[in-house]
């Protein structure tokens, strides 16, 4: 029994080491490649340079990429909150006919992968002349975020007891006052969780953005894909330099997010 237990912990540790080593290997290769020259053999490069970053900043409008990426992320969070919070409130508090059906409909955009509904969605964007525009990119990125937020916010709203609200109603408070003075302050942790996770998700959302973004409405990850796709058009180290810029952006947001939430909240939550 004892030796069996030991074997399992060795296997577990070994597998985790292999996994972590490969993830770190991938990330460090990208970073080292982007700051080195003539790294054809050997464990580490011998010549270091900042040339590829200068190349990338000539090649791309990094400012515009950052602006689009963060504008889309922040505006989407604000719009999604405005849409998701009231819905999460009703779904958390009220019982009504068809609630189960409505909930599973809201889950659908989280379960159906973006590539499956993204193409018809992109065609609609072309039809209504939203494609290659910032508004189009913002609109399509709402699709996975709104259901995600509803799902995260619901338990937070359920936790706020109905007593406070009933008391406020008895004291003559209006709905808007209850919302502003009771619900929002007590669900700040939920709003933060939902907001931060959505920002991280939107920054790394490739599929949907790629299908509707155009030249100057590309986010960093879409520009990175375009560069990697056109391998040969520019030095691979320059592609890696852009990869590092994306990596740092996403990583900083992830680290901020992990200050508030646990990693298990970032995947689809099972009931």
């Amino acid at each position: 029994m004892r030796s069996k237990l030991k074997l399992s912990s060795i296997l577990f540790a070994a597998a985790m080491v292999v996994y972590v080593a490969n993830v770190l290997g991938i990330l460090f290769t990208v970073v080292l490649n982007s700051i080195s020259k003539d790294w054809f053999r050997g464990v580490f490069p011998k010549i270091f340079t900042g040339d590829w970053y200068r190349y990338v900043s000539r090649d791309h409008d990094i400012g515009s990429l950052m602006f689009v990426t963060f504008t889309v992320a922040f505006l989407d969070v604000l719009i999604a909150l405005a849409v998701a919070f009231p819905a999460a409130y009703v779904l958390a508090r009220k019982e009504f006919r068809g609630k189960g059906l409505l909930l599973s409909l809201f889950l659908l955009p989280m379960i159906v992968p973006p590539m499956a509904y993204g193409i018809p969605l992109a065609m609609l964007c072309y039809k209504f002349h939203l494609a290659a525009r910032l508004s189009g990119v913002i609109l399509v990125n709402l699709v996975p975020i709104v259901p995600f937020m509803i799902l995260i916010l619901m338990p937070f709203i359920e936790q706020v007891g109905t007593n406070l609200e009933s008391a406020a109603v008895m004291l003559g408070a209006k709905r808007w006052t209850i919302f502003r003075k009771i619900l929002v302050p007590l669900t700040v942790p939920g709003i933060l969780t939902a907001g931060i996770l959505s920002i991280v998700k939107t920054i790394s959302m490739f599929d949907l953005t790629y299908l509707v973004a155009g030249g100057n409405t590309q986010t960093i990850v879409v520009a990175l894909y375009a560069d990697a796709y056109a391998a040969g058009a520019r030095p691979p180290q320059a592609v890696d330099a852009l990869a590092v810029i994306y990596f740092l952006t996403a990583m900083i947001c992830l680290l901020v997010a992990l200050k508030f939430v646990s990693p298990t909240q970032m995947v689809f939550k099972l009931k």
């Binding site: 993830v23 290769t29 990208v30 991280v200 990175l224 990869a243 990693p263």
Partner: peptide, 24 residues
Amino acid sequence: TITFFLIVPITLGAVLISEGMLSY
């Protein structure tokens, strides 16, 4: 620490992982 390293590839997404795998 373990869950952090697990969440990194999910967060970074397929494009970065693919680009990194090409060299690594």
